[in-house]
């Protein structure tokens, strides 16, 4: 089935939601995911560095931005992790952050892997017609 890739993505990000918000346009989905990946690659590295430096302000700000971007890319679990980190940083309780950050990184790797697979038959099927 040509929809299998989307099914595989389902527990990483909500493809249906994203597609709906991209007005049913797969090119648009691709563009958003690319933007998202560029931004998150940078932000995630910066976030890890900010943790190393114990820069609470910066952690909160980066996590906030990641949270917003994830929500927009329908990457709901990424969003949850980012929100938890932001919340901890705002409360100046960085203790639990490293573990969360690890989970965030893992989730991110799953996400990028899923998106890479998503070079999708579904898209070719649509754009080739």
């Amino acid at each position: 089935m040509s929809f299998q890739p989307a099914d595989q993505l389902a527990d990483v990000f909500d493809m249906e939601d994203l597609l709906a918000r991209c007005l049913g346009n797969f090119d648009f989905v691709q563009r958003v995911l690319n933007k998202f990946q560029e931004r998150c690659d940078e932000d995630l590295a910066a976030l890890e560095q900010a943790m190393v430096n114990a820069d609470t302000e910066l952690v909160a700000r980066l996590a906030h931005r990641l949270k917003g971007a994830s929500a927009n890319a329908s990457a709901l679990r990424l969003r949850e992790h980012a929100a938890a980190i932001e919340d901890a940083a705002r409360r100046r309780a960085l203790g639990a952050v490293p573990q969360r950050l690890g989970e965030l990184r893992q989730e991110w790797d799953r996400f990028t892997a899923a998106v890479a697979q998503f070079e999708p038959p579904a898209i070719h099927a649509v754009s080739a017609s």
Partner: peptide, 16 residues
């Protein structure tokens, strides 16, 4: 919009 993903989505919607 400082978040480039949001900006991308918003911009595309509005153009649409």
């Amino acid at each position: 919009e400082d978040d480039c993903v949001s900006a991308e989505i918003l911009g595309s919607w509005l153009r649409h």
